[in-house]
Amino acid sequence: MAKIRGAIKVDVEKCKGCGLCVVACPTSVIALSRDVNSKGYNYAYMEVPEACTGCANCGLVCPDSVIDVYRVKAGVEA
């Protein structure tokens, strides 16, 4: 059975750390980093990347269009 795997790429410098993607993620993949970007924002990142399904909810709610979402059908892993 094929499994859907996803991943996100955040434009770290443009992320303002609003956290809306964090609550929008149904599989609790995203968190705000303890590090900050050059503007001092705690940017979003994948804390639990293996849980990402590439549903794009984070991208949809992102006010700054800084999240690219990737999705792939992967085989069942051993």
Binding site: G6, K9, G54, A56, G59, L60, D68, V69, Y70, R71
Partner: peptide
Amino acid sequence: IIKEENLVYTK
């Protein structure tokens, strides 16, 4: 996963 052909949502 992060490859051009897998991109499903972008700006």
